[in-house]
Structure formats: structure tokens, C-alpha cells
Design a protein around this nucleic acid. Sequence first.
DNA 1: CCGAAGCGTTAAGAAGGTGTAAACGCTCGA
DNA 2: TCGAGCGTTTACACCTTCTTAACGCTTCGG
Lengths: 221, 221
Amino acid sequence: MSKALIIDDEQQMRRLLRMVLESRGYEVCEAAEGQLGLQEAAFQRPDVVLLDLGLPGLGGIEVLKRLREWTDVPVLILSVRDHETVKVEALELGADDYVTKPFGTAELLARLDVIQRRRFTRQSPQIVAGALVLDLLHHEARLGDELLKLTPTEFALLKVLAEHSGRIVTQNQIVKQVWAGQSSDPSEGLRVHINHLRKKLGDSGPRIVNEPGIGYRLNSD
Amino acid sequence: MSKALIIDDEQQMRRLLRMVLESRGYEVCEAAEGQLGLQEAAFQRPDVVLLDLGLPGLGGIEVLKRLREWTDVPVLILSVRDHETVKVEALELGADDYVTKPFGTAELLARLDVIQRRRFTRQSPQIVAGALVLDLLHHEARLGDELLKLTPTEFALLKVLAEHSGRIVTQNQIVKQVWAGQSSDPSEGLRVHINHLRKKLGDSGPRIVNEPGIGYRLNSD
DNA sequence: CCGAAGCGTTAAGAAGGTGTAAACGCTCGA
DNA sequence: TCGAGCGTTTACACCTTCTTAACGCTTCGG
């Protein structure tokens, strides 16, 4: 049986959600405030979290952020606002889906189903090259424990190199994949981005070595 | 789960293909136009591409050509035409197989299976001459376990020699292939590059022997 | 024996590719 | 409207690679 954690300050909403969820066979626990929600999450280890964005005190976004620091539990966002920015922010922080109040119970349950099903099949597609790990889903690059701060172009570039880790990738291949379908000729700028990447990768991690006249190679040792 | 990319301008065809593929467990993405198809291919990284030859705008042949500039993803050609010439052209450009519309779903799936199975067993085109292995795709030259560090010219030169391993290659032939399309006359400099190659090949591996007045020969023993 | 032709080897200048920093222009959000 | 972040361009120093030239060696025919 799955366990669900509700974090919402309105008691009425909590009661409604509890009824719907219990009727569906969920075990339910609640928290009326952000800080308590985090404690409950750590203590109860729910299988899914329903999080209201309009929390007093510690806001929903902040709760989600702290939650994501240590767990990947699926989070379904509840909000009366339909501000696109907040929605996007929440999803980028790793929320799994979003429902706008008021919502029908059918819609809620449907989205929960999707999340739960995804949970078992999901594992982020990722590319590993030595200590370097690229999480394609979350657009994250890690070097050991450290989270690299890469621009989109840098990420795409590193992705191409890491996909063929240890082998040469032609400059042509790199340009075609990173700048797919663009008319401008970035063959000059490629060197600049390589330079940036090398700086961010540092001295200890994998190295990007040049094969003069041909292309680049990512050496993961 | 494998990911398939459909590039076809007819929506009906795309829908049909999507149904068939998804029922087989493929994850499907689509593009209705050639240029978009190329972008999708770069972005989505499909495991197989289904490409219609009769595309408006950027034609199917052209799409295949550009695709092959940077990826080896298996491509299955779809076409209403049964023109032998186009078929041959596509296959020579590196298409993996060909289905003529209208086609049965069984036939389509069978060919996809073949392509997918081949994908895992396939290896880069390479030239072998004794202990020397030239990987043309990755621009790598190996002598036993050792990776040779060759300049582009040296690699091209060694490639010509290795292709005709054990046979004489005329100086003329060498120059024509290595310095194809260049105006300068490097017939003098050839000796220098041969010299460099011999040094890098060492004493134990294959030897480049001279046939006075004629050309060179690569002896793989 | 001698000279010429072809080849191997080395060195040095020329050409082109690469690393790096800085400046510019663009987009997007505050 | 402004500023931050990012992509791109530009410029220049540096290094690799290519080419050219020179010289000594071997071979072969006169």
C-alpha cells in the first residue's frame, strides 16, 4: 500500500484529499505547515507528496527545494495560482506534476496514477564517464559529488563528448549535434565553449583533449 | 525501451506508424518536415529513424545525407516510389533497409527487428593489416593494444597503404588519394611523411617498404 | 670507377589550427 | 528600463603540422 503525505494549510482541503486518497487505498499523513511537512516527509517516508504552493511561513517552493536536497519522492503540486512562472519553477525544481485548484477528484487520481506508474519505470537517463555523470532528464552534470553549473550549450557539448567518451568526436559531428538545424556557423565559437568546459571540469576530473585537425576526445581518466 | 523517430509529411502515415510502434513498445517522436526531423534527431537521439523519401522541402535523400554526417543511427526508408535508382542511392548513403508503401505492419516490424539486432552486433568500418587496425569512424590507429598518435596526413597515408596491404601502391595513387583536390604538388614531401610513419610504426610492427621508382608497399608481417 | 637518380633523414620556415581573454549584442526577467 | 547571463565574434599568442630545402646514402648503368 502506498503512503501519501499532504502538506496544506487549509484543513478543509486536507480532509477532502484524505478522503479521496483513502478511498483509493492510500495511507495518508498530513502536515499543516511547511516545516512540519519536511519533518513528516523525513519521518514517514511517503511514496508521494501532495504539496500546496500557497503555504504560509515556509513557502511551497522552498519546501520542494529542501525536499529535493535529499529525496526523489514524487511530488504533486497543488495551487490556486495559475502563474506560469511558479508552475515552471516548481517543475524545474523537480516537481512531478501540477494541479490547479479547484480540481476534480478524477483528475487528481489520474495524475497520481501517472506519477506512481512513472515512479517504477523511471530512472533518469544518464551518461556516465568516469567521475562525470550527466543526468539528461534534470539537465544536471555532476563531477563526483559536485554539481557543475553549465550553460545549455556547454551541457549539450559535454553530452556529445561524454556519449562517445574515450573516442574522438569530429568537429563536424559536434557542431551538427550541438547546433542542430541552425544556420550560423559556430565552428569558430566551438573553441571558446571547449575552453569554458575545461575550466569548469577542473584539473582533477576528465579531460577534453584535442586531436589536431580532427576533433576532441573526452578522457575519463 | 527503444526510441523511434518518424519523419513523414503525411499525418495519417505518422499516426499509423506511431500506433504500430507504440504497440511494440517503442517510444515515438515525430517530425513532419525534413529540417525539423534533423533537429529532432539531434535532440531526441532516437535508436531508429523511419524516413519518408517523398518529403516536401528538404528531401528524404538530403535528410539522410545530413544525418549521416554525424550519426550512425539505423535508418529505415519509407517510399511510395519503387524507383530502383532512388532505392540504391539511399542504401549507398547508409540507409539500413527499405520498405515500399503500402506495407504491412508485420513486414515493417520484421525489418525493424533485423535493424535493431544488427545495431548491437555492428562495429565500425575498419581496415586490418596484421597487428595494425585502422578505425575509420573514430579516426583511430592501433598497433596491437597501443594507440598510435597520427596526424591527419599520416592517417590518410597509412589508410591508403593499409587498404592495399601487401601490394604495391604507386606514388601517383598515394598522392591522388591523400592530397585529393589540392593543387600543390607534395610528391617531394611524401618521403618525409613516409619517414614519420615508419618511426611511429616502430621496428616490430608492419613495415613500409619502398619499391624504387614505383611506390610503396605495406608488409603486415 | 664514376655519375646520376632515387631514397632516407634532418632541419627550418610557412601555414594553419588551437587556447585564451576580452568585447559585443542578444534575451529575459526584475 | 536596466542588468545579468549567455552566445558569438574578434584578436592575438602559441603550438602542431605541413611543406620545402638541403645533404648524405645506396643502387645501378655506363
